[in-house]
Design a protein around this nucleic acid. Structure first.
Length: 490
RNA sequence: CGGGGUGUAGCGCAGCCUGGUAGCGCGCACCGUUCGGGACGGUGAGGUCGGAGGUUCAAAUCCUCUCACCCCGACCA
């Protein structure tokens, strides 16, 4: 294995792939477009899950689990939905194999054809709304606030580790409400939860807004989203929250009796984030030396490397370090004491840098004499020697500082790469450079499509709370009420 | 689906053009010296060359077919 990683400047996608592999996050599986998430990568996902799950519970949701298989007829019920997902569905048509009469191996037993094909869920609206028909009879049954942690399969043309895989892990919230206002409030609330998570935990600033019709979730009235800017200037959709109106209720014939004793259709939302967030995390913070993790999501926040030659040396260091480890444990700071004698310190240093551990400490005999410890931070790649006593207090504030520093850094980057343009020439030039481009748009699908064809840029979102400032569409010159955000995207 | 590429030891690759004992680096095992930024020397283990056919005295190498994966596009979270 070579020791250097391709740089971001040389080849961004190669750099990305190398980080994923070298930091031991994931690897390609034998199945096209699928990945094996390795323990270190999965530990990050578990941290994400924990934080998000707490936030979902906090906002009144419960977890449930619905089946992997969706009868084809269910998927067909909501027309837009069916059309949107049809092209990327894995379909189960048989339930049995048999030995190949011609020789070795197994073949599909044609006698086991299913009466109705089962679609491996690309998303669960269909199965879930089928259940909701039985769950919802009265306004007293509402709201239904359900979340599910699951895997889904979308047979994508082109895949990339974490960013787009045929199978991915995610959570999907599916709620039903008495009124439109309530459902809209839910949609906004969950978008807010996502924004808070991505900014506070992942240390990645996001823009919030609503998608244009062409980028809308299949079957939704409106799709709200958060968008983040990656270091190569491309945008990444980090989460979506959909206002589904009464579309699914009507399609699945879910009705309830309201307070006025009238039959009505409940109003729905759905919202999700996926393991793609790990891709976002990598591309937002990491550098040419490897992964950089925000402390709040780092499986190991602090690693301590003893520098020793002999068992006696190690014993002395162990003795010194023991109370420190106990204190870290008591404070709930995930740490690793790496007293493994199979690798040398230099090797370990490089390894933990590759894995993005936020804080690294080294302690050797020299430190024992001086009452010091060496402390290095991953975000700035700096190190200093500090008094051993009281080091845990220092670590605590340092972890908070690193978390904040990563966010600030990403925010400055985004600000430095967000531009307003008013002419078509300026637009084209700017899009080439990457970044978010704020420009006027006439609101038509045709213009949006033309811009996409000519520049590969899409409208990432229409900002929610931006000031209305009329102008002329950058492409057609027609009237526009406010600027929208363009970018090339993942 | 279009374009490009790759399948040879656990990983990364050379060998193929011009057929003739399957090689290198890393990793791995053992021994010794090392150990505060990816150590060094020595010894050693490890491969039916993606698969199937064909040509040939002889195929990793030539021919045909096939499978898989990766990268770049179109599609998407």
């Amino acid at each position: 294995m070579s020791k250097s990683i391709p740089t971001r400047e040389d080849n961004y996608s190669e750099w990305y792939n190398e980080i994923v592999k070298r930091a031991d996050l994931a690897e390609h599986s034998p199945v096209r477009g699928c990945m094996v998430i390795k323990p270190y990568g999965f530990a990050i996902w578990e941290k994400m899950q924990k934080a998000l799950d707490d936030m979902f519970k906090e906002t009144g949701h419960q977890n449930a689990y619905f089946p992997l298989f969706v009868p084809k007829s269910f998927l067909e019920l909501e027309e837009q939905h069916a059309e949107g997902f049809a092209k990327e569905c894995a379909v189960v048509t048989h339930y049995r194999l048999k030995s190949n009469p011609d020789g070795k191996g197994l073949i599909v037993d044609e006698n086991s054809r299913l009466e109705e094909p089962l679609v491996v869920r690309p998303t669960s609206e269909a199965v879930i709304w089928h259940s909701y028909k039985n769950w919802i009879q009265s306004w007293r049954d509402l709201p239904v606030l359900i979340n599910q942690w699951s895997n889904v399969v979308r047979w994508e043309m082109r895949t990339r580790l974490f960013l787009r895989t045929s199978e991915f892990l995610w959570q999907e919230g599916h709620t039903a409400h008495e009124t439109e206002a309530e459902a809209l409030e839910e949609t906004g609330k969950m978008l807010g939860v996502y924004a808070e998570f991505v900014e506070q935990w992942m240390a990645v600033p996001v823009l919030q807004g609503v998608k244009t019709a062409s980028e809308r979730f299949a079957g939704a009235i409106d799709t709200y989203c958060i968008e983040a800017l990656m270091q190569d200037g491309k945008a990444l959709q980090a989460g979506t929250s959909h206002f589904l109106g009464q579309n699914f209720a009507r399609s699945f014939d879910v009705k309830f009796v309201n307070k006025e004793n009238e039959l009505d259709y409940p109003w729905a939302t759905s919202w999700g984030v996926s393991t793609r967030l790990i891709g976002a995390l990598i591309m937002a913070h990491s550098d040419d030396k490897g992964l950089v993790l925000p402390p709040k999501l780092a499986p190991i926040q602090v690693v301590i490397v003893p520098i020793f030659r002999t068992d006696e040396d190690l014993a002395k260091i162990n003795e010194k370090v023991e109370p420190l480890l106990a204190e870290l444990k008591a404070k709930g700071i995930p740490y690793k004491y790496d007293d493994d004698d199979k690798y040398k310190p230099g090797y370990k240093f490089a390894e933990y840098e590759l894995k993005g551990v936020p804080v690294r400490m080294a302690i050797g005999l020299r430190d024992l004499e001086n009452g010091t410890i060496e402390l290095a931070r991953r975000d700035e790649l700096s190190k200093q020697t500090l008094p051993f006593d009281g080091i845990v207090g220092h670590i605590e504030s340092l972890l908070a500082e690193i978390q904040q520093n990563l966010y600030d850094r990403a925010l400055s980057f985004r600000e430095a790469n967000t531009f307003s343009v008013d002419t078509w020439d300026a637009f084209k030039a700017r899009i080439e450079q990457g970044g978010f481009v704020l420009a006027h748009w006439d609101g038509t699908d045709e213009t949006e499509e033309k811009i996409k064809q000519e520049t590969k840029a899409t409208i990432r979102l229409i900002p929610l709370n931006s000031i209305e400032m009329a102008g002329k569409c950058v492409y057609s010159g027609k009237e526009s009420a406010k600027r929208v955000v363009f970018a090339r995207a993942y």
